[in-house]
């Protein structure tokens, strides 16, 4: 789901470049406190894994393929701000070294996958854990990943419509439909990776610890 150069109108890519740069800059600032030194090697490795996994397009229905996005996985492991930084770095490397995703569309891609994707994934994961009282982490991870990629695709649909590429009434259901399917793959990969890379610890809930 990388928007190439040309899809977005000049107004839209200018605005999203400014907004995307501001959001990425703010995410960098927040990462200063959100990420601790001992987490750095793991976060770097997770970013490399997300890059590699994104290369592996898997076929879905109707002659179409999808690929892993990773925003939800990064957010589950390192929180939404560090995830936004990791995903922005992936997008920058892809656009600059591999011509995957446009340069003028970089801000838009950062907003949709790095920002919307990370925060939607993080929100759903946390809400899911709370709802399920910490059980069934797999279900929370799957839902987080599915919502994250579908939300990112809605963002892309909105920008396409604003750019006059296609009316929202056509772009939104089309993007949503395909990414609801791709989201199943996203959910399965995220579920497996999050289960493998996290450890369950039973501790008093923070609110209750001193009550």
């Amino acid at each position: 789901m990388h928007i190439p150069d040309g899809y977005l109108s000049m107004e839209v890519w200018t605005a999203t470049t400014v907004a995307g740069a501001a959001a990425a800059g703010y995410a960098l600032r927040r990462t200063r406190t959100a990420l601790a030194q001992p987490q750095v090697p793991a976060a770097a490795l997770a970013g490399a894994f997300i890059f590699a996994a994104q290369m592996l397009n898997f076929p879905i229905a109707g002659g179409t393929s999808g690929h892993f996005l990773g925003s939800a996985l990064a957010a589950i492991l390192f929180g939404p701000w560090a995830a936004a930084v990791i995903m922005s770095a992936v997008l920058i490397i892809q656009a600059v070294l591999f011509h995957d995703g446009g340069i003028t569309a970089l801000g838009a891609n950062i907003l949709c996958t790095a920002i919307i994707g990370s925060f939607a994934g993080y929100g759903v994961y946390q809400a899911g854990l709370r709802l399920l009282k910490g059980r069934l982490q797999a279900a929370a991870s799957f839902a987080a990943a599915w919502v994250s990629i579908v939300a990112a695709s809605c963002g892309v649909a909105l920008l396409l419509a604003l750019s006059g590429a296609a009316p929202l009434s056509a772009a939104l259901p089309a993007m949503l439909g395909w990414h609801a399917l791709i989201g199943i793959g996203e959910g399965l990969i995220t579920m497996a990776a999050a289960a493998y890379l996290t450890e369950r610890r039973t501790s008093l809930a923070r609110e209750g610890a001193f009550a």
Binding site: M1, Y7, G63, T64, S65, S153, A166, A174, W178
Partner: peptide, 22 residues
Amino acid sequence: ASGRPDGLERVAEDLGFLGREA
């Protein structure tokens, strides 16, 4: 990896804006 169009490329094909890529 699959060489089929991904979700966004497929939508661009179906909705006729693939040609905007520049």
